[in-house]
């Protein structure tokens, strides 16, 4: 564990908590893509199956349990509890265009052809693109609430911080995982346009609005 890894995890944790607070306090999931949230739930379920086979640390287990619970909880809030506020007219990204290619890719490019390893690889590939329905929704409506943009900023920063962690680990531990690194870079690149808008607009107190 290094400082970048810890900062990345805390940023990921903050993103999820910001999203839950937004939904809970406003009793609404307006502006949030349910499809992205379903993809994140699939990501965590397929990645953290090793909770049952492999104990790493109390920290690791606690974070995995939290991510699993919160992602499933978010899907529950969006599709059941606050269903009426879910903006499904604007949430139209076809997730099969993400699920099928990432599933195929994980069957071809993996470290080992075993069920656990393929599911882990699938979750890494899927995570890298899981935010696309959300970004698509923001571009479709042309704006995002401030709290939604804080959520996106924290979520995007997390993988960026992991990249610094991987650079650190490569230099100081001689460890690298090419699948995680490439997917993590793709994931971070997808946020670049958003980061630019966040820094130039939201941090200056303006609402995130896309140029017409």
């Amino acid at each position: 564990m290094n400082i970048f890894r810890l900062a990345g995890d805390l940023s990921h944790l903050a993103a999820i908590i910001i999203l839950l607070i937004k939904i809970w306090k406003t009793r609404s999931c307006a502006g949030i893509s349910g499809r992205s949230q379903v993809l994140f739930a699939i990501v965590f379920i397929t990645r953290y199956l090793d909770l049952f086979t492999n104990f790493i640390s109390a920290y690791n287990t606690a974070m995995k349990v939290f991510f699993l619970g919160s992602s499933i909880g978010t899907v529950y809030l969006m599709y059941l509890k606050f269903k009426a506020t879910y903006d499904h007219n604007h949430d139209t990204f076809r997730i099969e265009f993400l699920l099928l290619p990432t599933a195929l890719l994980s069957l071809v490019l993996n470290h080992e052809f075993s069920v656990m390893e393929i599911l882990w690889t699938f979750s890494i590939y899927l995570e890298s693109v899981a935010i696309l329905p959300q970004l698509f929704m923001v571009s479709k409506t042309g704006e995002a609430e401030s709290i939604t943009s804080h959520y996106l900023f924290a979520l995007g920063s997390y993988r960026g911080l992991y990249i610094l962690n991987w650079i650190y680990r490569y230099y100081f531990e001689g460890f690298y995982d090419i699948i995680a690194i490439v997917a993590g870079c793709v994931q971070t690149i997808l946020y670049c346009d958003f980061f630019y808008l966040y820094i130039t607009k939201v941090l200056k107190g303006k609402k995130l609005q896309l140029p017409a």
Binding site: D9, H12, N54, I56, E117, A180
Partner: peptide
């Protein structure tokens, strides 16, 4: 380093 069965990252 190829397979990493002990995946400590989240």
């Amino acid at each position: 380093k190829g397979t990493s069965t002990n995946k400590d990252e989240l």
